[in-house]
Design a protein around this nucleic acid. Structure first.
Length: 597
RNA sequence: GGUCUCGUAGCUCAGUUGGAUAGAGCAAUAGCCUUCUAAGCUAUGGGUCGAAGGUUCGAAUCCUUCCGGGAUCACCA
């Protein structure tokens, strides 16, 4: 019994009765009334003037009269210009709040009729360096979007495809061989991914030296880049790897394990996980068969030199190579193969790729080619592309060491949270382990919220020198409000202020309280939109507004000292519900909320 | 050059399929803790929504052109 639907239907009836015509759905525009006006919902009558053939005010008044007479929830209305503001009876809102409390996961959809299996791929790291801030954005987005979509009743599978082979991996391996002195994570005491990453940087440094020497000797930059001994050795190593040379493979396995163990630690700290991890070393040969089949079907073309291409000129794009003249495959070929493989593995019909916006073109092409190959699900492949995270100085570059490392950042956040708590004297009477849990929750919450509240497609800048805020529109602000609510509930329990099981609909409530209930009312719609748009930011901003509103309420609506039992009970009930929604919404962002802080 | 994308307060960002007087936070200033957690609340200042046209009863939102930033256009991944 969604009140907006009831209103919509009623408006249609009104128009039919009054003007003898059926309005089309689009012309019924009902929205929340802006705060500066009296009312709960507003009908915009402009689109209906065509049917009414009367001035806006008159039309609005006529419809208002009809609605007030026929819909019992409507107690009053006013008209300003072409806007018909409808007031809903307060008892309706109070009973609505009661009904919300009876739902288990308010706003979630359970037992959806035809749940879809949706794959979401995110993270997809390279095993040659540790994770950085860009990966954090990717992981948080992927994990949160997966939760949000699942909350709307579909079956979501999280997959990670680890890029564990290729020339970049060989670079780290080679540098380790040359300058590593048999060091291991155990010996150095360094986290494996960082250790390997150091060798990747080392490679680049030495490689650059060689290049500048060659250039000094008179070669062009182009030539020098190709002819430097190090890069040639790395290429040789890749050839050996592909030929399954046992020594190379063994080194590769060792170093990959170091990195993957390191990733696991970071993933765990971040609180993200996967249903399945694919490795590119297992899948990089996939796709060739699809291409050959496509060739037979005539969906692809073969050139004189034997290379195979997809012709996308009808789609306004170029031609795209899929098999080189020597028959080897390219990145796109692989991706065709892994896409097919995954969809088959899970019998899925929809997939979301969480990948940076520099690959927009790649995914556009991928989708078209899969369509040409005859896969109907190609229509349901979505690229959730997100903007880069930049430093004030510009882009982050792993090879040059100008990155914000994920582990460092996480640690820094916890440290800041601790400092903050200490300064405020918040955690003085907590045990050491409680304290640790709480500061981790707060630090992580600050980071996650900081990243997720921003529209994914926007490029964001991050200044490592300025620590992430803990006041205002931040994770800790929301967590704090939650903790206060929990404290309220505990105190109420001690002081025998009852939490009613059912609300008295005659209770007198303030505008602020009404406003809060109305905001609770939009939570399910917010979740739905967030799922449709793959947008955690929607939810983040919703919770912020709710919390802001709640704090105002909290400030000037006493609960314990309120003598009217009806009112104190109602306020406690309302507070608890707000708390539930904070927890639920933050949960969808992958952010925990503490009971005390 | 083609395609895509972004441009809203000093800074970081909201702004639902076009709707009423464009909103928050940070930073600045001034208030509020013997009473439910001050990581909070209140107030003040701060804007030609990149620019110009157009569509519309109505545009930050849609269309066109231009300006500025970013991405991409490999027989790299």
């Amino acid at each position: 019994m969604n009140i907006e639907l009831i209103l919509k239907e009623a408006v249609i009836n009104a128009v039919e009765k009054l003007y003898k015509k059926t309005p089309d759905q689009k012309s019924i525009q009902i929205q929340q009334t802006r705060k500066d006006f009296e009312g709960d919902f507003t009908l915009v009558v402009f689109p209906l003037l065509r049917v009414s053939k009367k001035p806006p005010e008159l039309t609005a008044n006529e419809i208002g009269d009809y609605l007030k007479a026929n819909i019992k929830q409507i107690c009053e209305f006013n008209v300003i210009k072409g806007f018909l503001n409808l007031s809903i009876d307060k008892s309706f809102w109070i009973s609505y709040l009661s009904s919300v409390a009876q739902k288990d996961n308010f706003g979630f959809i359970k037992n959806k009729e035809n749940p879809k299996t949706i794959l979401i791929e995110y993270s997809s790291p390279n095993t040659n360096k540790p994770l950085h801030l860009g990966h954090i954005r990717n992981n948080l987005l992927g994990y949160s979007v997966a939760k949000i979509i699942a909350s709307q009743g579909d079956d979501v599978k999280k997959v990670n495809i680890v890029n564990d082979r290729g020339i970049h991996i060989c670079k780290s391996m080679l540098a380790w061989q040359k300058w590593g002195d048999s060091v291991t994570p155990e010996i150095s005491g360094k986290k494996g991914d960082h250790l390997v990453g150091d060798f990747y940087v080392k490679f680049d440094q030495e490689y650059k030296k060689e290049i500048s020497i060659l250039i000094a000797e008179g070669q062009t930059e182009e030539e020098a880049k190709q002819k430097a001994p190090l890069i040639q050795e790395a290429q040789e190593m890749l050839r050996k790897w592909e030929a399954q040379d046992s020594e190379t493979i063994s080194l590769w396995k060792d170093m990959n394990k170091w990195v993957l163990d390191g990733f696991d630690v970071t993933y765990k700290k971040l609180g993200v996980d996967f249903d399945k991890i694919y490795f590119e070393s297992d899948t990089y040969k996939l796709g060739k068969k699809l291409v050959e089949e496509g060739l037979e079907k005539g969906a692809l073309i073969k050139k004189e030199d034997g290379s195979v291409w997809a012709d996308l000129t009808n789609e306004g794009l170029d031609q795209k190579i899929l098999l080189r003249s020597d028959g080897t495959s390219v990145y796109m070929t692989q991706d065709l193969g892994t896409a097919h493989q995954r969809m088959t593995d899970y019998n899925a019909i929809e997939a979301i790729y969480v990948v940076g916006n520099e690959q927009i073109y790649h995914f556009q092409v991928l989708k078209i080619i899969l369509g040409k190959l005859g896969f109907e699900w190609s229509e349901n492949l979505h690229h959730l592309s997100y903007g880069m995270v930049e430093l004030p100085a510009g882009k982050m570059k792993s090879r040059e060491g100008t990155v914000v490392d994920a582990d460092d950042l996480l640690e820094g956040m916890t440290a800041t949270a601790e400092e903050m708590s200490r300064d405020l004297g918040k955690l003085d009477d907590f045990s050491e382990s409680e304290k640790n849990d709480i500061i981790k929750t707060i630090g992580l919450g600050a980071l996650k919220y900081f990243i997720l509240k921003v529209d994914p497609k926007k490029t964001m800048t991050f200044d490592p020198k300025e620590s992430i805020d803990f006041n205002g529109n931040t994770g800790p602000f929301i967590q704090y409000t939650y903790a206060r609510i929990q404290s309220l509930i505990r105190k109420a329990n001690d002081k025998n202020v009852d939490l009613p099981t059912d609300l008295n609909t005659k209770t007198k409530i303030s505008n602020k309280e009404l406003q809060l209930i109305k905001q609770i009312h939009t939570y399910p719609e917010t979740l739905k939109e967030a799922a449709e748009n793959y947008s955690p930011a929607h939810i983040a901003n919703y919770i912020y507004d709710l919390v802001k509103e709640f704090n105002q309420f909290y400030h000037d609506h006493p609960i314990m000292s309120e003598e009217d039992k009806n009112i104190s009970g109602f306020r406690l009930f309302l507070s608890k519900q707000v708390g539930e929604i904070i927890k639920s919404g933050m949960g969808l962002l992958g952010i925990n909320v503490p009971d005390r802080m």
